[in-house]
Design a protein around this nucleic acid. Structure first.
Length: 743
DNA sequence: AAGGGTGCCG
């Protein structure tokens, strides 16, 4: 009685008082513990029964299933094997229930082979035997063998039940058997009792994973009593098919229906908010999770980190991260990636070091860290990860090889990049990474050569391929070629140009001085131009000092309620380059009133494997006195050689520019620091988060000549390679980059 | 028995 009431301690007490304990009383107790999930206790009791039970007490057809279930639940293979021996010793080798539970035990311990041996040895089998072995194969990843047995089951005239069908449906999903999945769906629809929620839920999941979200929707709509799993399956189905808006709509409907979300629902909806940048809805979900206590689930906290990061609220993400008591790999990976996305790659590397103390990074972690290394030119750190990848064998598939390739390309190391490229089969992304590398160096000819090679290798170009290609043409002034490729996108490769391609074309024409043509492209394009398109025009107007058209572009951008500082800076530079100082002052005032802060310039330089970061106007660096002295020395020499400062006042980095002597720009500081801390003659590699200014460009050119060192500065757009007083960009921001490999 | 959080190249 007490067992049935769930009061096990009371039952144990009564059991202890009993004078005579027969098999039945042992069974009741063992079964009670096993059913409640107290598997250790159940196994312990079974042991006592054998030792203390006395001559008359032997395990029977009821005892074995209970204790085997406990072994399966704990994945105690050794114990299970021992009990298998007991089954044979006590003569139950032909009892169907006992053998069925043996199959289940082996399967749960991950040993489907021994389960199969038991199954094959049975002289009679029932539906449960078939279910046990079939779902065993599915659970252990051998879906094909499971499906084979499923067909065999029907040949043997056993009718599968709903449980069988649920596993079969998820097996179809795993092996990607869409037509079989559809057939199973048809079969289920004709089943005697009709399908239940779990069958429908797995159908939703299966169709979603095939990208057939409309079919998933049909199944979902037909479910009469949708439970939390049905709703969540549909939400994540939309999510995985890139329909985050629909995912959020579905969640709202679920709320209206009064279904209570659980931790998985919250995580899925947060993921939808993250991809859409819906800060307010996500914040509400956060509040809900706090109120209901669901934040305690690691999955929810991790989803929150990702959500805040992608909504550019990295400080909130950090707050959530630091509140997690036991962070797992995903928590760390999410915060590292979040810092990377929010332009805080330097800190991302610091978090990676901290993480490694207690946890082993996985492939996704390494991809995120490599991406951070690529942003700040942390070559040594990237190489360290490369070594780790080779040691761990993680790098053979997935995104890791391309992440390594990207890291080498962005760090300017083309030789290891090409080695990385050559060692493996390349997909579109790999080609795109190399193309992007050429675009950054303004190597239009090389980009076209590479594109031809790519076409020769039967890899289909995608939309990103054309962005890289158009970019390369634009930076090299190859207008005709660029326009030709733009046209061929649709005609030859059936890729419809998107907003980004149009932005490239506007840039292509604009940079070449064909400003009116660029404007015409914008006017005639089939979709509504977005801020980056007008931004490309504005930038072209800045280069060619066309105030009227630039103002028109700026009005369009500001009319779209855009809060990005970059466009204000561009307009400001257009005014200052054109000598319109009143307008500059007016615009700066507006910016101050709007509370728009200009991103601080930041440069990084890696010395002996350590990345050093410099902010513009940095005065706190321990070696700042020395750095300033060195730079001042060069400045004096330059002036003596007849150099005069450029007239314009750039507000790219700091408002009160100290341009007369020493502008304090971060790339200068980084170069100065590297000069002091590396051996003479050694090359210097600097990475910067904004564009280089003209005065720094002049100065570094001069420095490269005086100290006879090669200096590379990679800014957001180009690689500048300074050697003997000449820059690879040809002082135009574009030009030939001389490949010069130093590792 | 069914649903889940992190990912390269504009």
């Amino acid at each position: 009685m007490f067992v049935r009431l769930g009061n096990l301690s009371e039952a144990w007490y009564v059991f202890g008082k009993m004078q005579e304990r027969d098999v039945f009383s042992w069974n009741v107790l063992i079964g009670g513990y096993a059913k409640k999930g107290f598997f250790d206790e159940a196994i312990e009791l079974y042991g006592r029964m054998l030792w203390l039970g006395g001559a008359g007490v032997r395990p029977d057809v009821y005892t074995f299933p209970c204790v085997l279930r406990a072994c399966g639940g704990l994945s105690h293979w050794d114990r299970g094997k021992e009990i298998h021996a007991h089954v044979l010793r006590y003569g139950f080798e032909s009892d169907i229930d006992v053998l069925n539970s043996l199959i289940t035990m082996y399967v749960k311990c991950g040993d489907v082979e021994n389960g199969r041996v038991v199954f094959d040895g049975m002289c009679k089998r029932d539906r449960i035997s078939w279910n046990a072995i079939i779902s065993g194969y599915f659970e252990n990843g051998e879906c094909l063998e499971g499906l084979r047995l499923f067909f065999l089951m029907r040949e043997c005239c056993f009718h599968p039940d709903l449980r069988t069908m649920t596993s079969v449906i998820s097996a179809c999903e795993v092996v990607g058997e869409e037509s079989l999945g559809r057939a199973v769906h048809g079969y289920v629809a004709k089943m005697e009792y009709g399908a239940d929620e779990s069958v429908h839920n797995s159908l939703i999941q299966m169709y979603s994973s095939f990208g057939k979200w409309e079919d998933a929707e049909k199944v979902f709509d037909r479910i009469e009593c949708k439970d939390v799993v049905s709703w969540t399956s549909m939400i994540s189905g939309y999510n995985n098919n890139g329909l985050a808006e629909k995912a959020i709509e579905t969640y709202k409907m679920m709320e209206l229906e009064g279904v209570v979300p659980d931790e998985i629902t919250i995580a899925s909806v947060l993921s939808a908010c993250a991809s859409l940048g819906f800060l307010d809805i996500g914040v509400k979900l956060h509040e809900l999770a706090e109120k209901t206590g669901l934040v305690r689930y690691l999955m929810v906290a991790n989803a929150l980190i990702d959500f805040y990061s992608k909504c550019m609220s990295i400080d909130k993400a950090l707050e959530v991260f630091h509140q997690i008591p036991d962070k797992n790999v995903i928590s760390w990976t999410s915060i590292i990636l979040g810092l990377r996305i929010n332009n805080r790659s330097f800190e991302a590397l610091i978090y990676f070091r901290k993480m490694k103390i207690s946890l082993n990074p996985n492939d996704v972690t390494l991809i995120s860290v490599l991406s951070a290394c690529a942003r700040i030119g942390a070559l040594m750190c990237g190489k360290e990860i490369h070594a780790h990848v080779l040691r761990s064998g993680l790098g053979l598939n997935g995104f890791l090889p391309n992440a390594l390739l990207d890291m080498y390309v962005r760090c300017g190391r083309m030789v290891p990049a090409m080695n990385q490229f050559k060692t493996r089969k390349h997909d579109v992304a790999a080609w795109n990474i190399l193309l992007t590398g050429h675009a950054q160096r303004g190597q239009g000819e090389l980009a076209i050569e590479l594109f031809d090679k790519m076409m020769g290798s039967k890899v289909n170009p995608d939309e990103i391929t054309f962005i890289a290609l158009l970019c390369s043409c634009s930076r090299s002034g190859m207008v005709t070629e660029g326009l030709q490729y733009f046209k061929s996108m649709k005609t030859e490769y059936s890729i419809t140009p998107n907003l980004k391609h149009y932005a490239c074309v506007v840039d292509l024409l604009g940079r070449a001085g064909k400003l009116d043509d660029a404007y015409e492209v914008i006017e005639k394009m089939p979709m509504k131009p977005d801020p980056p398109i007008w931004g490309a025009l504005l930038n072209a107007c800045r280069i060619h000092r066309r105030v009227d058209l630039g103002e028109l572009a700026a009005r369009q951008i500001f009319g779209m309620d855009n809060m990005s500082v970059g466009y204000y800076v561009l307009l400001c530079n257009l005014y200052s380059d054109s000598g319109k100082w009143d307008e500059v002052a007016r615009l700066r005032k507006t910016m101050r009133e709007m509370g728009l802060a200009i991103d601080p310039g930041c440069s990084w330089v890696e010395i002996k494997g350590t990345v050093h970061a410099f902010l513009s106007g940095d005065t706190f660096h321990p070696q700042i006195q020395e750095i300033t002295a060195v730079l001042r020395g060069f400045y004096e020499k330059m002036k003596a050689a007849g150099y005069s400062d450029p007239e314009k006042s750039s507000i790219d980095e700091i408002e009160e520019s100290k341009s007369e002597v020493f502008c304090g720009h971060s790339e200068r500081l980084a170069v100065g620091f590297a000069l002091i801390n590396t051996a003479p003659g050694m090359p210097i590699w600097v990475t910067k988060n904004l564009y280089m200014c003209e005065s720094c460009h002049d100065m570094i050119k001069f420095v490269s000549k005086v100290v006879r060192r090669e200096i590379s500065v990679r800014d957001t757009e180009h690689f500048h390679h300074f050697k003997e007083g000449i820059c690879s960009c040809g002082d135009e921001g574009y030009g030939e980059y001389l490949e010069n490999e130093i590792t």
